[in-house]
């Protein structure tokens, strides 16, 4: 059962499993400062210890990349992901693994077989770090995406007319996402007119102006027209200075003017609509 380098360490750990978990939990809990319940932590560590001992005791005990460590790795992935999502720091997460060394040394005693065991724990600790970092990156990417979504409200102003009020600095990446969403909304709502209101945009650079232009051309290919409203004098200066040809693209001073233009083209009788709605 026991593989050579670890001697009888596994048997000794098994015999003292309860003490081991208690000692380990005390160390981990100190760093978590009560943010995870004792019961939860106890179960987590007990499962992990059991998996680690089985893996170490297997014939491939020295190789943490071997299939014998499958369950250990799965548990560590769960643990580090959960910690990353709960906002724990990398050290607070890795300590879950590294403190097992001290628990074993103090509870079971450190003989010659402790060194290979310690190496295994080091490997597992690094693995935890890596999964933690990956999970964090996923969280950050997801949040960035959600933020973009939030900052991209495409609103339906009238049957057949949608508006995209842009607020804040437009960088190239955001411009791209925003424009894609606008085009998709045209299809989803069957709208032939889109008003892009840039009153809230302080400045545009060449790339953003190009994105805007490309979106308008793409909308035309789909059978829809874009109207740009709220161009600030500064942005007009930029557009002209950059030599960007806005050609026959409709521009209006205000969102209201743009809406009137779109309604006129659709053939909406505003006065009749108002009386119909009792306004």
């Amino acid at each position: 059962m026991t593989s050579e380098p670890f001697g009888d360490l596994i048997e000794r750990c098994r015999a003292a499993e309860d003490d081991l978990v208690r000692r380990w939990r005390a160390d981990v809990a100190a760093s978590l400062r009560g943010r995870i319940s004792e019961v939860e932590l106890d179960k987590e560590l007990r499962d992990l210890l059991d998996a680690v001992l089985s893996a170490v005791g297997s014939s491939q005990g020295g190789d943490t990349k071997s299939p014998a460590y499958g369950e250990v790795r799965a548990l560590l992935v769960d643990l580090s992901r959960a910690r990353a999502l709960q906002g724990f720091s990398p050290s607070e997460t890795a300590i879950n693994v590294f403190t097992l060394k001290r628990a074993v040394r103090e509870v079971v005693g450190a003989g010659a077989e402790f060194q290979p065991f310690s190496d295994v724990i080091d490997d597992l600790g690094l693995f935890t770090f890596e999964t933690y970092a990956r999970a964090r990156e996923e969280v950050i990417a997801q949040q960035a995406e959600q933020l973009l979504e939030l900052a991209t409200p495409v609103v339906k102003l009238w049957p057949g007319v949608v508006a995209l009020p842009l607020v804040g600095t437009l960088d190239s990446a955001r411009a791209q996402v925003v424009m894609e969403k606008l085009l998709q909304t045209l299809v989803d709502t069957g709208s032939e007119y889109a008003i892009i209101d840039i009153t809230g945009v302080p400045a545009v650079d060449t790339q953003v102006a190009q994105h805007l232009l490309k979106t308008i051309v793409a909308a035309r290919l789909m059978g829809a027209e874009c109207i740009i409203s709220g161009i600030r004098p500064q942005i007009a200066q930029t557009i002209v200075a950059l030599g960007i040809e806005f050609g026959d693209i409709a521009t209006k001073a205000t969102l209201a003017d743009a809406l009137m233009l779109a309604l006129g083209r659709i053939g909406v009788d505003v006065a009749a609509e108002m009386s119909k709605r009792g306004l």
Binding site: L183, Q184, V187, K214, A218, A219, L221, M222
Partner: peptide, 9 residues
């Protein structure tokens, strides 16, 4: 489709 239009441009 929007993706097709963007690509064509």
């Amino acid at each position: 489709r929007p993706a097709v239009a963007i690509t064509l441009v």
